[in-house]
Design a protein around this nucleic acid. Structure first.
Lengths: 226, 226
DNA sequence: TGTACCTTTTAAAAATTGTTTATGTACGTT
DNA sequence: AACGTACATAAACAATTTTTAAAAGGTACA
């Protein structure tokens, strides 16, 4: 699924915006005419539409109206015409925001971030960690092994997140300890190893021969993407 | 419930905007300081906040940050400063729109309509939540289990709506508490668990082995669509 | 004003998780 | 191969959280 559908007939500007938004972390489909946009949305889906008001043929408002017949996707208008009437027109027809030309790229990106956040609650790009057979939904605080949910205790969960966020990297015990129990904790070293064991029991096929959570002797542990 | 909380220290402007928005069909609470706004939101709820950037004492950004700690309510900034930095600042801190002073009343209203439409009309559409055997008619405030109506108390109902609107997502206790009892409530944690029990007694086949309302140990509760 | 119902508080029981302890096993160095 | 050290394991214990039931306090409505 494409993140953003960009409808702008000016080729150079189309390209420019696309590249900028892609740098911002979005996948962008650039099209050059209203008809193209409508066609695209019939076949594929997008999370947001950027729509130039003045397009050859079907203009921005017409595209907006057409899209709105079947979808509630956020729409941002782009226009050189700064007069109020146009703005009103856009909003009334179901637009969500309006950016004036010449386009301030950063402002555009920021507005898109706001809309995305609100509508898809893309709070964190890394809200879901995929790592081999293990995936962690940080939002819901749930862990899946080969698609099947496994329940972890809070400590085991925190431990797994720390490890899985740094695959291939050895995390030493003091660090893990500090991150989970806090700097001024009086607990024993053993506590950590016990939690490691419990975690292994749940996420390793053969807990006695761990593949995902490797121990690095004298240092700490390392998570491998398997 | 108030529709809009308006935070603007300039009394005349505050009044003007309030009257205009009221004509637009919204109920508006006007306050004159950031602290007042924060206080208000602790006690009551609003659907949208209009926030002047430059306020005496706690400024707009500070209010925004404070509000965002506990709520996802749409926020529109108002500011005389048109420079880009401020705009960015606002959006990055979780604002949804930005209107320049002097305020174009009609544009403001149109933007508010857009935000309201996006954030609340969507929910109006699914005023009926279907979730497995449970369906909730939010319009009528009635709950059905396997097509048969069950009567819930107000608190139990609010709890169920919150949970059922976020199936599969773990909602932590503080959040639930805040949404139902308000931020500055002195009630005990136990109150929540008691209501959870009552809810389970009504919507679970085997209240002792709950399937729909799962407890996530140490965190909160999660609703499963069954 | 009284009643019925809802909400909150309280307290004890049950369930779950976290930590410590003890013992066995593996590792690396000499 | 032997030794000390670090890690793994299992079970006992401690601490915490949740469930449950019942009583007390509020509130709305007749």
């Amino acid at each position: 699924m494409t993140d953003i559908l960009l409808v702008e007939d000016h080729e150079e500007l189309n390209e420019l915006i696309r590249i900028f938004l892609e740098k911002g972390g979005y996948s962008v489909k650039g099209v050059y005419a209203g008809e193209e946009a409508v066609e695209f949305l019939k076949k594929e889906r997008a999370k947001l539409v950027i729509l130039d008001v003045s397009l050859p043929g079907m203009d921005g408002f017409a595209v907006c109206a057409s899209v709105r017949e079947s979808s509630n996707i956020p729409i941002v208008f782009l226009s050189a015409r700064v007069d109020k009437e146009d703005k009103m027109n856009g909003f009334l027809q179901g637009a969500d925001d309006y950016v004036e030309k010449p386009v301030d790229m950063e402002l555009l990106l920021v507005k898109i971030n706001a809309l995305m956040r609100r509508n898809y609650s893309l709070k964190q790009e890394n809200a879901v960690i995929h790592s081999g057979a293990v995936s962690i939904d940080k939002e819901a605080k749930r862990v899946f092994l080969n698609g099947r949910e496994i329940t972890l205790t809070v400590k085991a969960y925190e431990l797994l997140v720390l490890l899985a966020e740094n695959p291939g990297k050895t995390l030493n015990k003091q660090y893990l300890f500090q991150r989970i129990w806090g700097a001024d904790s009086f607990s024993e070293d053993q506590t950590l190893t016990v939690h490691i064991k419990m975690l292994r029991d749940k996420i390793e096929e053969e807990p006695k021969k761990p593949k995902r959570i490797q121990t690095v002797w004298g240092i700490g542990y390392r998570y491998e993407e398997i």
